[in-house]
Design a protein around this nucleic acid. Structure first.
Lengths: 112, 112
DNA sequence: CCTTGCGCTTCGATTTCAGAAGCGCAAGAG
DNA sequence: CTCTTGCGCTTCTGAAATCGAAGCGCAAGG
């Protein structure tokens, strides 16, 4: 499996290891942003299968991979009983995504 | 080829067609954010091969696909002589990505 | 026991991406 | 004119990422 993108190390699409490139690599993998979004929406720790259902029944193999990446990146974490939730850093990420969500609504309007 | 994600139509990873999901599908494809970023950085219209070089010599086939998607999404456009640049909507998108870039720096610091 | 649901993991099929090659065109050199 | 150079892609084949059904080990309930 590809290593989890980490700032300071070369990543997919950039040899420099600049933080933004590592972030774009990590977040650009399929289902990653969606999983983060669903973790945020649920607000309390959530189990694997429950999270999977909320992500339109995405493949369990990919979900498992994504959660491992998010844990290694300090964006998500597991409670002692195994349920998943965002870390403070993960919540900050969701906040940082806010303007992007606003933009997507404008985008939708201008193309409707 | 997969159709370009459009708000209001089902997309990869979501059957609802909600704008944010269409945006995440489009932006989550490999090299998409990087291409947008490089178009923004260059500030003036830029040719295909030049853009390719600035994207770490990404595959021309994928770049061509991405640019077509961005054009259909009204994020990028071509000048009469074929050079590429962001639309106003595309520039708004870059602005909306700002907080995400800030976050990536914080992320880099906390894991350094 | 036996069933149900859980958190994953495994594995073959499908989709996407990488990267080298090449096509048609246009501009400049000789 | 011919020859070369560079451009904007397109095509093609192999590699990588993803899908999705199946299943494993465990724990709780009947």
């Amino acid at each position: 499996m590809e290593p989890t993108p980490t700032p300071g190390r070369p990543v997919r699409g950039s040899a420099t290891g600049r933080p933004v490139m590592a972030a774009l690599d990590l977040l650009g993998r399929r289902w990653t942003l969606r999983a983060i979004w669903e973790l945020h929406r649920h607000a309390t720790p959530i189990g694997f299968r429950d999270l999977q259902r909320r992500c339109d029944d995405m493949s369990s193999s990919v979900l498992s991979t994504r959660l491992t990446e998010l844990r290694e990146a300090d964006i998500a974490t597991q409670t002692p009983d195994g349920a998943w939730q965002l870390t403070p850093l993960g919540e900050d990420l969701v906040t940082a995504m806010g303007p992007l969500l606003d933009w997507s609504r404008v985008w939708a309007e201008r193309r409707g």
